[in-house]
Amino acid sequence: MDRFHELSAFVAVVEAGGFSAAARRLGDSQSAISKSVNALEKRLGVQLLQRSTRSVRLTEHGRQYYERTQPLLEEMAQADGEIMRTTLEISGPVRVAAAATFGRLHVLPLLPALLARYPGVRLDLQLADGVNDLLAEGIDLAIRVSPERHPDAVVKRITSSPLVCAGSRRYFAQHGVPATPQALAHHNCLIYKDMREWHFTGRQGRFSVPVSGNLSSNTVETILSAVQAGLGIGMFNRASLVEPEQGQGRGTLQDAEIITVLDDFIDDTRDICLVWPRRRFIPARVRAVTEFFAEALAPRL
């Protein structure tokens, strides 16, 4: 039998003045309380309580044992309470990383609600494209689009975003709208990182089209700015282009001058994920912030 249960039963009998009252105090049966105290006495090899039909009294051994053990139970209860209060009082630093464009559109608008819910949290938001070394950079939580899998990280998918091919009305007015993916060979395609082949789906299945242009960049923000300026066509996940409409999900394109093309040829999506370092212990404040973004991001996308 569990020693803690034995000790708790014994102290409850002493303080409540009997087995029935102790059972009510602990929410257990009288027989279970009696068995626990009997087991304790058997294990110690001494009688702790003198029982009669009307009363229960401490023996001398029982008095000594109670005086030593009752403070221990109080300290354990106090320790439990401190841990529970620490869990409930969400406070302290939390470092969050997100891709720049995605973070500007979908993370920044959520910060007032997050900090209003947890005013004790001190948030450090890092907005940058690219994969972070979470541990080396002290990142508690990363919000990523199609993150690379890593054995030292936990990845939780919260939703997905379709890919879209987009350009400005001004650009298409000057250069025409491509009717097929192959027509991109005659357009200025803006390259994000090393994505020099764009993938499409047609009647014959999936195929790739080589693309080229006069601008490439390692940030989505640069490609988006160039598209808005009418320089060419870019490939994006749709979440990087939309403004949510009061929680209505996909929302509309944030810039009315940007339109998507070749929609019938694109069926790829990108996972939106929460990523955090694999640890044995995750602070309550980090768990709370992670759960907040898991709940709040999906409806926007």
Rank of each mutant, 00 (worst) to 15 (best):
H61I: 00
L224T: 07
I266E: 06
R203D: 15
F4Q: 12
Q174I: 01
L125Y: 06
V107W: 03
A294E: 15
E243H: 09
R144K: 11
Q126G: 00
V227G: 09
L190M: 05
T69E: 13
R104M: 10
G251M: 05
Q246S: 13
V289K: 03
Q64V: 08
D264C: 02
Y192H: 15
W276A: 11
L48P: 00
Q174T: 09
N38R: 13
A284F: 09
E15P: 09
A113C: 00
G45T: 09
I282Q: 12
T260S: 11
R169M: 09
L141K: 05
R280A: 13
R144Y: 10
K42A: 12
P244N: 11
S8A: 14
K193E: 15
E295L: 11
R287M: 10
P210H: 05
S31G: 05
H187M: 07
L127C: 01
F10L: 08
A185S: 15
S146D: 15
V242I: 14
R63V: 01
R3H: 10
R279N: 08
H187S: 06
K156Y: 02
G234I: 05
A116K: 15
G234S: 07
F200T: 07
R157V: 14
F200K: 10
R57A: 05
A173M: 03
A142L: 03
E221F: 01
G62T: 08
D28A: 15
L241D: 02
M1P: 12
R285E: 12
G27L: 10
E245S: 12
T290V: 01
G81C: 05
D267E: 14
V37L: 02
L110R: 02
F4N: 09
L125H: 05
A185Q: 14
E295G: 05
A179D: 13
D267A: 08
R170Q: 13
G17C: 06
P181I: 01
R287D: 11
A116I: 00
G205Q: 11
W198P: 02
C165E: 03
A142F: 04
F19M: 13
V131R: 15
V211W: 08
I139T: 10
Y171A: 04
E6P: 04
A79W: 07
P244C: 02
A32V: 06
K35C: 00
V11Q: 08
R144T: 10
F293R: 03
A21V: 00
K156C: 05
V13P: 06
T53A: 13
A185R: 15
P244K: 01
E67H: 08
S240I: 00
Q30E: 15
Y192R: 10
I139P: 06
Q228T: 03
G213I: 02
H187W: 04
T101H: 01
H106S: 06
S55T: 14
V56R: 07
W276L: 13
S55K: 12
A288H: 07
P112A: 01
R170T: 11
I191K: 05
L115M: 13
L73H: 09
K156D: 15
Q204K: 11
S91L: 04
